[in-house]
Amino acid sequence: MSKPLPFTEASLARAIKAVKRAGLHVIGVRPDGTVITSDHPIEVTSLIPQDGHNESVPSKWEDQRG
């Protein structure tokens, strides 16, 4: 059985709206409900490796027989 979250969906939505009204950007939420902010948006393309190694790599746990 999992532990209940320390925040509700409604309280998180209110926190995110407050962050946006303050002129900041939400970049994540921690498991304890802490909203992680930035003063500028993250460029999503910067998260993709530029060396061409963005293909799916099988896990060592996956069956390698082929």
Results as ranks from 00 to 15, higher is better:
residue 35 V to W: 03
residue 54 N to D: 14
residue 56 S to E: 07
residue 17 K to N: 13
residue 57 V to L: 09
residue 33 G to T: 07
residue 46 S to E: 15
residue 20 K to G: 12
residue 24 L to Q: 14
residue 35 V to N: 06
residue 24 L to C: 10
residue 17 K to L: 14
residue 26 V to Y: 01
residue 64 Q to R: 11
residue 43 E to T: 11
residue 5 L to R: 15
residue 61 W to L: 11
residue 64 Q to A: 07
residue 31 P to D: 09
residue 51 D to I: 00
residue 16 I to N: 05
residue 17 K to D: 15
residue 42 I to K: 05
residue 52 G to A: 04
residue 66 G to V: 08
residue 65 R to N: 14
residue 59 S to D: 09
residue 66 G to H: 12
residue 14 R to Q: 15
residue 4 P to V: 01
residue 28 G to V: 03
residue 66 G to Y: 11
residue 5 L to N: 12
residue 13 A to M: 14
residue 30 R to G: 06
residue 62 E to Y: 00
residue 30 R to K: 15
residue 65 R to F: 08
residue 3 K to V: 08
residue 30 R to N: 14
residue 62 E to L: 07
residue 47 L to K: 08
residue 38 S to E: 06
residue 48 I to M: 02
residue 28 G to L: 08
residue 23 G to A: 10
residue 28 G to D: 09
residue 4 P to S: 09
residue 7 F to P: 02
residue 23 G to N: 10
residue 32 D to R: 11
residue 66 G to D: 14
residue 38 S to H: 10
residue 25 H to D: 11
residue 21 R to Y: 00
residue 39 D to T: 06
residue 12 L to N: 03
residue 58 P to M: 08
residue 10 A to Y: 11
residue 39 D to L: 10
residue 23 G to Y: 04
residue 41 P to T: 02
residue 33 G to L: 12
residue 23 G to S: 11
residue 61 W to A: 09
residue 62 E to G: 01
residue 12 L to K: 10
residue 47 L to F: 02
residue 33 G to I: 05
residue 5 L to Q: 13
residue 54 N to G: 13
residue 64 Q to C: 02
residue 21 R to D: 15
residue 4 P to M: 06
residue 36 I to M: 14
residue 6 P to S: 09
residue 62 E to K: 06
residue 17 K to F: 05
residue 1 M to D: 13
residue 9 E to W: 07
residue 6 P to H: 08
residue 43 E to P: 10
residue 19 V to N: 05
residue 31 P to N: 05
residue 42 I to N: 04
residue 33 G to Y: 06
residue 30 R to H: 11
residue 52 G to R: 06
residue 30 R to S: 13
residue 27 I to P: 03
residue 44 V to F: 00
residue 51 D to Q: 04
residue 57 V to D: 08
residue 30 R to F: 09
residue 45 T to F: 04
residue 8 T to E: 03
residue 34 T to P: 05
residue 24 L to G: 04
residue 58 P to V: 01
residue 41 P to S: 05
residue 66 G to K: 14
residue 17 K to M: 13
residue 37 T to I: 10
residue 6 P to Q: 11
residue 11 S to E: 15
residue 57 V to S: 10
residue 45 T to C: 09
residue 25 H to I: 00
residue 26 V to S: 04
residue 43 E to L: 12
residue 52 G to L: 03
residue 17 K to T: 12
residue 31 P to Q: 07
residue 57 V to K: 11
residue 23 G to P: 04
residue 62 E to Q: 12
residue 56 S to V: 06
residue 42 I to M: 07
residue 49 P to F: 01
residue 8 T to F: 03
residue 14 R to M: 11
residue 16 I to Y: 03
residue 2 S to W: 06
residue 27 I to H: 04
residue 19 V to K: 06
residue 26 V to I: 03
residue 18 A to D: 15
residue 12 L to P: 02
residue 43 E to D: 15
residue 40 H to W: 00
residue 29 V to Y: 02
residue 32 D to G: 11
residue 34 T to L: 13
residue 31 P to V: 00
residue 18 A to G: 15
residue 41 P to N: 06
residue 40 H to F: 00
residue 63 D to C: 08
residue 61 W to C: 03
residue 29 V to P: 02
residue 15 A to D: 15
residue 39 D to R: 14
residue 57 V to M: 09
residue 36 I to Q: 12
residue 34 T to Y: 07
residue 1 M to A: 13
residue 31 P to I: 00
residue 43 E to K: 13
residue 66 G to L: 13
residue 61 W to S: 10
residue 29 V to I: 13
residue 48 I to A: 01
residue 12 L to D: 03
residue 27 I to A: 04
residue 14 R to W: 01
residue 33 G to F: 05
residue 44 V to T: 04
